[in-house]
Amino acid sequence: MSEPRIGDVARKVRSKNAGPFVLTIDVFCADAGRFRAVCDALRTERIAALFGQAPELVRRFELDRLNVLKFSMPRPVVQGSRADRDMHASGWGWLVAELPLREGR
């Protein structure tokens, strides 16, 4: 059996613009157990490294009422600038979904 990934444990991973300059990623989980597993796996430093950001620029919200883990950070490139590849920031969430649940795998 292959290593489980975040996307196998979470119900849904969604990335989106929060205005032209901020990227926000929501990881929705079906229950408290999966939510805790995802929170443990996705350390803020791990997310920062994935997007090449300084950890202090990554804001983290653990919403236990909804079993959602949310990250907001400066958009890796400004929306619609020459280097942007994804106008609605739809693709960055896949990077999180495809991470192995266990680090270093």
């Binding site: 989106k16 929060a18 901020v22 926000t24 919200f61 919403l63 949310k70 907001s72």
Partner: peptide, 8 residues
């Protein structure tokens, strides 16, 4: 949460 940097 949607398109919002801060959920609160």
């Amino acid at each position: 949460l949607y398109e919002n940097a801060d959920p609160d």
